[in-house]
């Protein structure tokens, strides 16, 4: 009997912890959506800001986030994929390869603000790109690199060894095997990883603080060397800068809603895809 009660209490406390977790996280989402929805309108999504950030829309901010995210992916996806291909397909199990593996793991754990400082010192200062879309994209790209590498590695490892063997036994070269058998088979997994890291990159603020972001910039970014406005930074700036905190706060709700919606739906798609793949592989 006593055993029974202990088990009941134990399981109930576990239930309580997941209930609390979900209610708090749900509260955040609900709160942002309920306060943000009234702000959202067609104009808010398509118009530039007016009157020192107190009126108008946030179109350039959204565009800026899209540019930064795309830019970082243009840089990180080919590099990350190539790295994963080397580690999974070509690399001999040597010391050097282990060093690469460890460095990727550690790169994944570096705080995002440190990436920001690296970007500031290297891209903004050393290469002289200035505070720009390019610097920001590269910084975010380095941040996304380990995510993409490990996701791609996982996808490549999941490709059965036997079909690589089959391809090679037919007289295909290693490159042909990789390009025509391994990569197509691993593609859904790689895609999932890329989408997940897009979600992550789109919401990052610290790396673009000193490398790309501007609180106010007239019009849309014109070249890769211009400063950009971006959603996450914009939310931060609306809360901490500017002269009209109350009017800015309403816009911040709208921006938070857009960002949250973007990020949740992107990662939702990725995780849904992954779920599908898992059930497919059994």
């Amino acid at each position: 009997m006593k055993r029974d009660i202990i088990q009941k209490i134990g399981f109930f406390s576990l239930f309580l912890s997941i209930l609390i977790t979900f209610s708090f996280l749900g509260m955040i989402v609900y709160f942002i959506f309920s306060r943000g929805l009234p702000v959202i309108s067609w104009d808010f999504l398509t118009q530039p800001p007016r009157n020192a950030m107190t009126e108008g829309g946030v179109a350039p901010v959204i565009i800026g986030t899209v540019y930064l995210t795309l830019g970082s992916m243009i840089f990180a996806v080919p590099l990350g994929l190539a790295c994963a291909v080397y580690l999974c397909e070509y690399s001999p199990k040597s010391f050097v390869v282990n060093v690469i593996r460890i460095s990727i793991n550690n790169l994944a754990g570096v705080p995002s603000v440190v990436f920001g400082l690296f970007g500031l010192a290297v891209f903004v200062k050393f290469f002289g790109f200035g505070v720009s879309l390019l610097s920001g994209s590269l910084t975010l790209g380095i941040l996304a690199l380990p995510l993409i590498i490990s996701a791609s590695q996982e996808a490549l490892i999941a490709v059965p060894y036997s079909i690589r063997e089959a391809s090679l036994s037919l007289g295909a070269t290693q490159w042909q095997t990789i390009r025509r058998i391994v990569l197509p088979t691993a593609f859904p997994g790689i895609l999932t990883g890329v989408i997940l890291s897009i979600g992550r990159v789109a919401g990052e603020t610290a790396p673009i603080l000193f490398t790309a972001a501007a609180f106010y910039k007239r019009g849309y970014p014109k070249s890769i060397f211009s400063e950009v406005m971006a959603l996450p930074y914009h939310i931060y700036a609306l809360m901490t800068e500017g002269a009209h905190p109350d009017k800015q706060r309403a816009i911040a709700y709208g921006c938070s809603l857009i960002l949250l919606f973007l990020v949740l739906s992107i990662s939702g798609v990725a995780i849904f895809l992954r779920q599908q793949q898992r059930s497919y592989h059994g």
Partner: peptide
Amino acid sequence: LASIPSVV
């Protein structure tokens, strides 16, 4: 939910 951005 793990992907909610820190700024939010």
